[in-house]
Nucleic acid binder design. Structure first.
Lengths: 213, 213
DNA sequence: ATATGTTTTGAACATCGTTCAAAGCGAGCA
DNA sequence: TGCTCGCTTTGAACGATGTTCAAAACATAT
């Protein structure tokens, strides 16, 4: 009664607990990818993986918990994408451009799943999830590292990172909701280039502005 | 059957049709203001105004239609607020700052209702609502008018307006969802000032940066 | 006063998220 | 082997939702 740290028994099927978590998360992600937030339902998700809804409640939690899992995975994927984008050795301004490009390409490639991250509103009383703040911090740290050579002052850099991050978020958000196309025909990536060029004050052209989209 | 433009009969209660529309819209707005998107339900809305749900279906439509009405009103209120903000005679850079300030103040004063505008996702197959595109255009035209003296070229100005609009939207969005405070302690208005100062290249201080918040 | 057409509504339908209590099954002990 | 313990899985149920149907209530026009 007091010990039993290992486990009393084991699961029935061919999945252990972690595999089941991954199964649920990937199935939910697929549902969102194909039909958006409204396509993610508990009964539907359960039938997709061939389980009863209660199994998901026992292993993961309610629909909010499932959404959190998907969002955590999405942020990790975004993080990996951005890391790969700044891996090359290039001048800082080009790195900033590459970062914005990778961000917007990620969003364009998976708009529904990315939208879930900000469409999902947590209850206003519950505290901010730790893992979310950490994931966000890791990603913005990446931006800060890229901006470090151009903005030496730490305070100013922190403000610049937050501002640029919010601006990119706005471009991506309005783009996926088709509200950006109402204002201008340019792609969000072109606008991001404009933003970064003007914000960072790299007055001339940063790159020959190759147009392949 | 062919004519009868006026009306066959009249409503029962003390409200005519337009008054009823306004009643529904304002009640729905109040619900959202107090409890957010999740607090807006058809049965709850009906009981709030003392009618049966079916009356709302007959006069307004389904819950999506109600949401649209609230959002139209919100955009009109925002439009009026921004118009008032640029009414004063001042140098263009200060006007741009005032515009951003008014926008973010509007969002901060009514975050839940404002969030409804972008939280509400229309079906991906249905076309964009005309009135929404028009309302958006009117508001961004205001920004374009403010920026006109500083950016004479029409193409460049259109891009700048879209970019700044998206950036403001991002600041407001991350602010209401408490994701901006994770990154930096500064208020979104301070970050907007930084954004505009850097974007518009008004290198020095635009205003003495009076701090009253 | 009767007929007409709209407004209003009570009841029903389908579905949803979630919970409860029982059945199913693997592991440890006798 | 047989048995119990404890976790896993589930069928059924509960409450609530958005939405629709058909009937009742009502104001007007003849």
């Amino acid at each position: 009664m007091a010990g039993a740290e290992k486990r009393g028994t084991g699961p029935r099927g061919e999945h252990n607990r972690d595999e089941f978590l991954a199964l649920v998360t990937k199935a939910a992600e697929g549902l969102v990818r194909r039909e958006g937030l409204r396509g993610l339902g508990m009964r539907r998700l359960a039938s997709t993986i061939g389980y009863a809804p209660n199994s998901i409640y026992n292993a993961v939690g309610d629909l909010d918990a499932v959404t959190m899992r998907v969002n955590a995975r999405t942020l990790a994927r975004l993080q990996a994408t951005l890391e790969a984008a700044v891996a090359s050795e290039a001048a800082p301004p080009e790195k900033a451009m590459a970062l914005a490009d990778a961000y917007l390409a990620f969003v364009a490639a998976d708009p529904q799943v990315w939208s879930l991250v900000y469409e999902h509103q947590i209850a206003p009383d519950s505290a901010f999830p730790d893992w979310y703040a950490e994931a966000l911090g890791q990603t913005t740290d990446l931006v800060a590292r890229v901006l470090a050579p151009m903005i030496p002052d730490a305070d100013e850099r922190r403000q610049a990172v937050a501002t640029l991050w919010a601006a990119l978020h706005g471009l991506a958000s309005l783009s996926t909701s088709r509200k950006l196309a109402v204002l201008t025909p340019e792609s969000p990536r072109d606008l991001a280039r404009l933003l970064i060029r003007r914000f960072l004050g790299t007055s001339g052209s940063v790159a020959p502005d190759r147009q392949d989209a």
